[in-house]
């Protein structure tokens, strides 16, 4: 399978594209096992939003990066582990989260904002003015 085949394309309401890569397990990086955070993606009148569950990630260990049209969110899981703890049972087997999204050109690169609260990342990707949905006034003839 080529890299391109693994890219799923989501068409937005106005036929634009918001692509997302690697829906399954992320390839493991050196040493650390990576988890794919569950997300919510939605669009409203003037922005596209991404919400991602990244428990254990604080503002300091979070990384949101835009390279060309690819937005990457990643973060290290930090939990208070006293010294000498031996894991007896683990459902979360990984030390960081990572996921990419390919953005359409209609999004304003400069205006992207990200916040994280209680382990939930919220990214707002504003649309450029030309792409906002506009109501056109209908004048009486």
């Amino acid at each position: 399978m080529t890299e391109k085949d693994r890219v799923t394309t989501l068409s937005t309401a106005e036929g634009r594209e918001l692509q997302q890569q690697g829906n399954g397990q992320a390839p493991a990086a050196e040493g650390a096992r990576e988890l794919v955070p569950p997300v919510e993606v939605f669009e409203d009148h003037d922005a596209v939003w991404i919400l991602a569950d990244m428990p254990g990630v604080s503002k300091d260990s979070l990384n949101v990066e835009l390279t060309n049209q690819v937005l990457e969110i990643s973060g290290d899981i930090m939990v208070d582990m006293p010294e000498g703890v031996a894991a007896t049972f683990a459902e979360i087997r990984g030390s960081r989260y990572r996921r990419h999204f390919t953005l359409g050109r209609e999004l304003d690169r400069e205006g992207i904002e990200a916040t994280i609260k209680d382990g939930v990342l919220k990214v707002r990707l504003p649309k450029t003015d030309a792409h906002r949905r506009r109501r056109i006034e209908i004048k009486a003839a």
Binding site: D53, M54, P55, G56, V79, M81, P82, E83, G84, V85, A86, A87, T88, I92, K117, D118, G119, V120
Partner: peptide
């Protein structure tokens, strides 16, 4: 996780 005198349970409850 477990130490000699404690058990630590981590529940991932984002949001």
């Amino acid at each position: 996780g477990e130490t000699e005198d404690t058990i630590h349970l981590y529940a991932f409850t984002p949001g």
